[in-house]
Amino acid sequence: MSGKTTKLVYLALLITFAVVIHTIESSLVFLIPIPVPGARLGLANIITLLALMLYGFRSGMLVSVMRSFMGFLIVGNVVSFSLSLSGAVFSTAVMGLAFIFYKKKWINILTVSVLGAVSHNVAQIVMASFVVSQFHLITFYLPLLLLLAVPTGVFTGLSAMYLHKVIMKNVTVNHSLSQFRKI
């Protein structure tokens, strides 16, 4: 397989995993202390962060946007779609920005992930208040969601970190296999 095809297949797999997490996540609504249906914890950010680490910003954005669209087809309605899309796009943008600083070794990958979780929740709550046109939602639930973003972000970051380790191991295995076949 050429490098381009490998990337395509890996990205397709990543999107699939993200959609699965997205679908499972939508049944975890009881964990979220805001009374807006469609709000999520942002666990699918694991895959977004992974794509960001493996292939860079554009692939991360592709994975998160595609995940939102596919999730819209499987679970959810227009409201939850608008929430998840705004959360996905904004958190990927922030994580992509933070990733630059991660590469410079200024910040940890967990901080990148926590920033992603925070921006995910902020985007969701802002979008939710636009949908219900109740801007009190922002002031009342934002502190709670900020606090909730820390454990979510740590979990997401740790998962992405260890997944990245495993994948880097297996990529070399795949590589040696393809070399073997060529011979």
Binding site: W106, I107, N108, V114, L115, V118, L142, P143, L144, V150
Partner: peptide
């Protein structure tokens, strides 16, 4: 592993959240 920028960012997030919560309590 953790640099001082990490600590600054985390402290800002947690203190914003805690301050907001205390304010409403």
């Amino acid at each position: 592993m953790f640099s001082r920028y990490d600590f600054i960012i985390w402290i800002i997030i947690v203190s914003l959240a805690a301050g907001g919560l205390l304010y409403y309590q």
